[in-house]
């Protein structure tokens, strides 16, 4: 028994040292990378102290051209959009971490029904793992995944689980370099995709998720408490079928009501509200604008923000 305990003790010590060393190496790679998926995008945002933040899922990441919007608004913009279908917990986590470091002036939420509908996928909150050691909000969100998270976080490698290859690739410059968080999509929809959308029937409408609604309220509450202006924007999606257009209108009305309850202006720039977005050459796929579409959308958004006097205040 004594021999085994000693062996296990020695093994634990060895693992502790290796875990710390490898974890530190991975953290270094992570901090150096601005890749929205596997990089310290939040760290880059707070280092830049951009007065305007764009937040949301892949549609945010590919639709809001940070430098172009920044030039139009006269203030730097950082895009925190992240590939994947993210709910309100991502907004809450991102806002909570960023507010710990500085206070932006304008917070643009790219929204769609997924923000508040369908259950929050708690496993996805692993995206906050790299900040769990230093940020209470990240720790809170990560803790929702499993009651064992505090134990797992004893490891320094664990926050970077499954990221090693991407981090090394980013370090070697093999990753697409984002422009202040914006990742352009190239190419256009295929005729077959356009045809499919013409006859597409939307699936059953999911229920509003109380957890997502709670996170949305907390995110907006935290931003408002620090004097940040919040705007909810619905960017275009390629919809052509009558049923899909009707559904999009219905979703738009609902989102407007949700944000009105929180005192947040809702700007509907979707294709059902703005017919000029029905042009398929502006899209990479039905859900995402290509770079041309993104540039046009960003210009239109800047006009809309100006029209509603939602310009970022210049802070000292």
């Amino acid at each position: 028994m004594r021999k085994l305990l000693l062996s296990l003790l020695a093994m634990t010590a060895l693992l502790f040292v290796l875990d710390r060393a490898i974890g530190a190496g991975l953290e270094r790679l992570f901090r150096a990378s601005a890749n929205p998926t596997d990089g310290d995008v939040l760290g880059h945002a707070w280092t830049m102290r951009a007065p305007v933040i764009v937040c949301g899922a892949s549609r945010a990441s590919h639709h809001y051209v940070s430098d172009s919007l920044g030039a139009d608004l006269g203030a730097p913009v950082f895009n925190l959009g992240r590939d994947g279908s993210w709910g309100a917990a991502y907004e809450y986590g991102t806002a909570g971490i960023l507010l710990n470091h500085y206070t932006p002036s304008l917070w643009i939420m790219d929204v769609d029904p997924m923000l508040v509908r369908t259950p929050e996928i708690l496993d996805r909150l692993s995206c906050f793992l790299p900040w769990a050691h230093s940020e209470p909000v990240a720790r809170e969100l990560v803790g929702l995944r499993s009651h064992w998270e505090p134990v797992r976080l004893l490891s320094r490698i664990y926050p970077f689980n499954s990221m090693v290859l991407r981090l090394v690739a980013a370090h070697r410059g093999q990753d697409a370099a984002p422009r202040a968080g914006f990742l352009p999509l190239l190419g256009a929809m295929s005729p077959a995709d356009v045809e499919r959308e013409a006859v597409g029937v939307p699936g059953a409408r999911a229920d509003l998720d109380t957890l997502k609604l709670r996170f949305l309220a907390r995110a907006i509450g935290a931003l408002h408490a620090r004097g940040v202006t919040v705007v909810a924007v619905r960017s275009p999606r390629f919809v052509r079928a009558e049923a899909a257009i009707a559904r999009e209108r219905l979703d738009g009305q609902e989102l407007e009501q949700v944000f009105a309850r929180h005192g947040v202006r809702f700007l509907d720039l979707s294709s059902s509200a703005q017919p000029q977005w029905a042009d398929p050459s502006l899209y990479r796929d039905a859900s995402h604008l290509n770079e041309t579409g993104a540039l046009r959308f960003t210009a239109e958004l800047a006009d809309s923000l100006r029209a509603h006097a939602l310009l970022p205040a210049v802070r000292p």
């Binding site: 093994m11 693992l15 490891s155 970077f160 689980n161």
Partner: peptide
Amino acid sequence: RWLAYASVVLLLLLIGVVD
């Protein structure tokens, strides 16, 4: 042998599918 055991644990942490 012990190094192999340690490597397996590290691989679990590095690229294992948690949960």
